[in-house]
């Protein structure tokens, strides 16, 4: 698994725009903290694919660290 970004060839397309996704630098925010990550995004509407391994991996870890007790 890539350690630094989630740019990868993917079969996913944006259902609304019928566009193939493109690697885009996006800002992810959670509890007042902002992070810049490259993710596959619809070039038309900006809808971003967050792969499962990111959501339950690094992103979850970051969320847990940011979360209040």
């Amino acid at each position: 698994m890539s350690q630094f970004s989630f740019v990868e060839a993917t079969d996913w397309q944006c259902a609304a725009c019928n566009q193939p996704l493109e690697a885009t630098k996006v800002q992810v925010t959670y509890l007042k903290s902002a992070f810049h990550v490259e993710l596959m995004t619809c070039p038309k509407c900006g809808f971003t694919l967050i792969p499962e391994d990111l959501a339950v991996g690094k992103m979850l870890e970051v969320e847990q660290l940011l979360e209040d007790k």
């Binding site: 350690q3 630094f4 970004s5 992810v28 903290s33 810049h36 690094k58 992103m59 970051v62």
Partner: peptide, 14 residues
């Protein structure tokens, strides 16, 4: 992490 792969913000934060 023992590799020379670049890091994103999440990696640096983590």
């Amino acid at each position: 992490n023992g590799t020379d792969k670049p890091q994103d913000d999440l990696d640096r934060f983590l």
